[in-house]
């Protein structure tokens, strides 16, 4: 089983975003792996190991598009346990979902994975498009917003559950496929490869951290840098970002001292009860 995991670097979502003069100022930010992509890596690692801490069977390849600095995020994913990393060097501020999907399509053509797993969205652009566009362009099935993955013993299909508005939906999907993952995918028993791990297998209820051993091992792992041009992908975007602005601030509210005052205000002032 070879799994390709596209990962995006994003600005630290916990830092206050600076929006001024029509643009977002990211000069002072710190960068990290998009949380959903990190969950995708965790899922890929679980699908290729014999239970928690077990031997890796198969290969997890992480790929990112970004400036050279993005190698820091890729090294972190190698330290988590990914086997190899590919950095497609380029300006990640000048991409749209379509161009990302076309670059990834070329990477898929070169790597020929059995499965592509990525986050359902990046927490900066909040687009939620790349997985679906990539699936469309490859003619592969897609399984989006996944809460669990059970890979069949023969490696040819998976049973998945998806977070949908009405509850949880169960689907079966043939491989190769594109999967995008939601929060629940890092649950203890959310992901398992029937061929490798027994039904009783459990992992930590979160994505794994890079261990010291993992960090040492990562130094010897391949991190290959390639260019968009070498993949034969022409530039050009379909969606142009015109400008950013800060959302209107809510007007400051009032503090009330008691439940009585709260109920009185909701009844007489806001007239909502």
């Amino acid at each position: 089983m070879k799994i390709l995991v596209p990962c995006k670097r994003v600005p630290n979502p916990d830092l206050k975003l600076k929006v001024a003069n029509g643009s977002v100022d990211l000069a002072g930010t710190t960068w990290q792996v998009n949380p959903f992509d990190e969950y995708a890596v965790e899922a890929a690692l679980r699908l290729t190991e014999k239970g928690k801490g077990g031997e890796r069977v198969g290969e997890v390849v992480v790929v990112s598009i970004g400036p050279k600095d993005t190698s820091a995020q890729l090294k972190q994913l190698l330290a988590m346990g990914a086997n190899r990393a590919i950095l497609v060097a380029g300006d990640d501020s000048a991409l749209d979902s379509d161009l990302v999907a076309r670059i990834l399509r070329a990477v898929v053509a070169a790597e020929k994975p059995d499965l592509v797993i990525t986050g359902k969205q990046a927490v900066d652009g909040d687009d939620n498009q790349v997985g679906q566009i990539l699936a469309a362009s490859l003619g592969w099935p897609q399984a989006t917003f996944l809460a669990s993955i059970l890979l069949a013993a023969d490696g040819k299909s998976a049973t998945v559950t998806r977070e949908v508005d009405a509850g949880v939906e169960e689907r079966r999907v043939r491989l190769p496929a594109i999967m995008t993952v939601d929060l629940r995918i890092i649950g203890k028993k959310a992901v398992r490869n029937e061929a490798l791990a027994p039904a009783t297998a459990e992992w930590e209820d979160t994505q794994r951290l890079a261990s010291l051993k993992g960090i040492m091992a990562a130094k010897k792992k391949e991190l290959r840098e390639i260019t968009v041009e070498s993949l034969g992908v022409a530039g050009g975007i379909l969606v142009k970002t015109l400008r950013h602005e800060a959302p209107p601030a809510r007007k400051a509210g009032v503090k009330v001292a008691s439940v009585e005052e709260l109920v009185a205000k909701l009844h007489n002032e806001a007239k909502v009860i």
Partner: peptide, 10 residues
């Protein structure tokens, strides 16, 4: 975008 911390015109 950015969890609602920016409004972006595209």
């Amino acid at each position: 975008t950015y969890a609602g911390n920016a409004l972006t015109d595209v």
